[in-house]
Amino acid sequence: MCNMTLIDPPLSKIAPRQIGAMNFLGLWTLYSREVKRFLNVFTQTLMAPVITTLLFLAVFALALGGLGRTVGGVDYITFLAPGLMMMTMTQNSFANTSSSILIAKVQGNIVDILMPPLAPWEMTLAIAAGGVTRGLLVGLTVFVAMLFFVPSGVAHPLSALWFAVNACLMLSLLGMLGGIWAQKYDHIAAVTNFVITPLSFLSGTFYSIDRLPEAWVAVAHFNPFFYMIDGFRYGFIGHADGNVIIGYLLLPCVNLLLWLLTHRLISIGYRLKA
């Protein structure tokens, strides 16, 4: 990756590049690196999630739908589709940032990211944006594919977009935190298996939250995953289990906190710098 053929030009011709308040070029370079990283293996990072999501849609619609069953006032499949889309988007955003950082750490090329004159916030932004890009790209592809199977319009497109972007950002930041914290692939697999997947499975992707036992309904109302799935679904079917307004406001707040934490860890170089 880092080609070590350094040819020394005469020293007199070198002058340091002047960087203003913001290193646009560096930011853009790191961002495009993040995007190219997953596009390079697009069968794994784009096609596979899309196919899996469509299969899930088929399987769950066959197993749980049928007999004119409705949830939240719509067909089960119409209810399920936005939930599955959200699940895929979030899982991919998380996978992108966490694996990017962890692989760079394990392979040792994290120094190539730490060495250039990038401020911590620029690093955070570029990597998180890469994760958001993958999440949205997967989501969009799934959406287009689902148009063929799911008879539904989009009730509030801007709401859907708001929740999609915020959810992808949240999981990208969580992925960065996970990637920074993890030291082995095991660690990140554990976070994925024991935290991210359960949260995305159990927060209302497949069922209306009112099917939960009483005590868990209360818990659900403190779960950001619930708000992002519920809000995103509201954008599609125009019906929400919880309070959409809370979701509108809660997600950016959570994102802000996660952003500050990630930024802090990158500034102090926690598990990144020697």
Binding site: D186, P198, F201
Partner: peptide, 25 residues
Amino acid sequence: RFWTESLLGPMISTMLFMTVFTLAL
């Protein structure tokens, strides 16, 4: 040696499926 990934991972995801089915059915 990688039992969290190789053993616990599939167990958790199967349990999640079962939970989802219990709640959704």
